[in-house]
């Protein structure tokens, strides 16, 4: 039996309750295990909505969404998200260690306390993201880059197979950005699957092999070098982009 793709989306349509227009129209997308995909588009293109639908955070979509052959809400331990910064309450009093431990909750079960193995995995994740020295700090006191490292460390502790990162590069310093990409590259080399939403076109060619341009519907999908044409960008972003430099 062939292995199910990491992510399979077919004819996905969605509109928010009370809205007159669809946020996503006929989106179809298949991502194989081990791929590192950039989900590109302007603000409001539906990138976050797509990620939220994959996680089962929004209800009422039409079409099919499968994660490793199952509906996402049946394989929590296999999908993890680094959410957009604005959806997290950074002022809530939790320490870095507590946040990273949240990545272990799915393995822990409800109403149970962390075991030694969970603590070891947290230590390991902290060390990989180079934030061991911040472990007992309040997460709200950290810089944007440090906070993003914490979120990625939590994802490492989660040990998911499909990682969704929603605009992880916003408010992040260069060193953290490099560490994020280095970590993602290592993860995909190990067979994990990564999808990163971004509106930053600059990082595409260096760090991704595949790009999906989204503006409510899929505008282009394929090898970064092939799909990153002035026409695609103009269509996704609604403006003429560097057209004078095209050969």
């Amino acid at each position: 039996m062939p292995q199910s793709p990491a992510l399979f989306v077919r004819n996905l349509e969605f509109r928010y309750p009370g809205s007159e227009t669809d946020v996503l129209e006929g989106v179809s997308l298949t991502v194989q295990a081990g791929e590192r995909v950039a989900l590109v588009g302007p603000n409001g293109a539906g990138k976050s909505t797509l990620l939220h639908l994959i996680l089962g955070m929004e209800e009422g979509h039409r079409g099919q969404i499968e994660v490793y052959g199952n509906p996402a809400h049946r394989c929590f331990h296999r999908v993890a998200i680094v959410p957009q910064r604005s959806t997290v309450d950074w002022r809530f009093p939790v320490t870095v260690r507590q946040v990273v431990m949240m990545g272990r909750y799915v393995h822990l079960g409800w109403f149970r306390r962390p075991r030694q193995e969970d603590r070891d995995r947290v230590d390991e994740a902290l060390s990989k993201m180079d934030i061991t020295d911040l472990a007992n700090r309040q997460v709200g006191e950290l810089s944007g880059g440090q906070q993003q490292r914490v979120m990625l460390a939590r994802t490492l502790a989660h040990d998911a197979d499909l990682l969704l990162l929603d605009e992880p590069l916003n408010h992040v310093d260069i060193a953290t950005q490099e560490l994020i990409f280095h970590t993602l590259e290592r993860l995909t080399a190990d067979g994990k699957t990564v999808m990163v939403s971004t509106h930053d076109l600059g990082v595409l060619t260096v760090h991704f092999t595949r790009a999906v341009f989204l503006d409510r519907r899929i505008i282009a999908d394929g090898d970064v070098k092939e799909v990153m044409t002035p026409e695609t960008i103009a269509e996704a972003y609604g403006f003429e982009f560097h057209k004078e430099y095209t050969p």
């Binding site: 809400h73 997290v88 309450d89 809530f92 939790v94 949240m102 799915v106 409800w110 989660h158």
Partner: peptide
């Protein structure tokens, strides 16, 4: 006492909370 960690994650990061089925 029973749901301390559940309240923490739902308060700090609702998206992650949903992603892990809470």
């Amino acid at each position: 006492a029973l749901s301390y960690k559940e309240i923490l994650v739902a308060s700090f990061d609702p998206a992650h909370s949903v992603a892990i089925g809470l």
